[in-house]
């Protein structure tokens, strides 16, 4: 690789994934949470690379949690791609990507949020407090994945942090609003999953026939708004 190790930005780990992809990890891969300023740089890096998809022949650019996976065609050598990213990273400023703010109406509890009692009990708060706490923050879309339009939203109030369920549900309904670890999310499609379901929204998150395809994009801000009475 042409950048000597001594001149490389510190704490960045670059790994080869298969023969044509590189994974850049910008924080320790096992860090419990990704600092928002690191993730803001990941969003900026994504935007910068997205503009160069065609000229560089980039097949996939996938932002993760404090990392980015880039799959390249033969047009760009992986060494060249590594140099480009490592040279550009230090030039990124600690500025926020101006995403949109999207309000998601949520019906909490009852059949819409079957785990709400479990969550309230294990967090030691009332259901009303749980809903207020979940709705009190503005979350950021760290990245999308797992399903089309599934947004990893952070950060959850520390009072709501619970590990994932030991036994995942076989089928979680589309529109389910769930929490796990320091994140919250909405399931766009039916799927098995180990997150705790506290509510439901009718807002479609993935519409393959429309543009944009997914309601939420990286860097967007999300607020949950309770609708109806908690059940």
């Amino acid at each position: 690789m042409s950048i000597p190790p001594s001149d490389r930005p510190k704490d960045i780990r670059v790994s080869l994934v298969g023969e044509d992809a590189l994974l850049f990890a910008f924080t320790a891969t096992t860090a419990a949470d990704v600092p928002i300023d690191v993730q803001q740089r990941v969003w900026q890096l994504y935007g910068w690379l997205d503009l160069q998809r065609e000229p560089l022949g980039l097949i996939e650019i996938v932002p993760g949690m404090g990392n980015i996976l880039i799959r390249a065609s033969q047009k760009t050598l992986l060494n060249t791609l590594q140099d480009l990213v490592l040279t550009h990273w230090p030039q990124l400023k600690d500025i926020d990507v101006q995403g949109r703010t999207i309000e998601i109406p949520v019906s909490y509890g009852g059949a819409d949020g079957p785990d709400i009692d479990y969550v309230a009990e294990h967090c030691g708060i009332s259901i009303v407090e749980l809903i207020e706490t979940h709705c009190s923050r503005t979350y950021r879309v760290y990245c999308l994945g797992f399903q089309p339009g599934f947004a990893y939203l952070g950060d959850l109030d520390p009072r709501l942090i619970l590990p994932r369920a030991k036994t995942p549900r076989l089928a979680i309904a589309p529109g389910s609003v769930a929490i796990a670890g320091s994140q919250t999310a909405i399931y766009p499609s039916e799927s098995p999953g180990g997150w705790h379901i506290i509510g439901h929204t009718e807002v479609p998150l993935f519409t393959p026939t429309k543009s944009p395809i997914t309601l939420l994009q990286i860097g967007d801000s999300v607020r949950f708004v309770p609708v109806g009475e908690p059940r």
Partner: peptide
């Protein structure tokens, strides 16, 4: 034991 940060994966991984 490790608890890794979520990252992009590809077919074949």
């Amino acid at each position: 034991p490790v608890n890794l940060l979520s990252a992009g994966v590809l077919p074949g991984d």
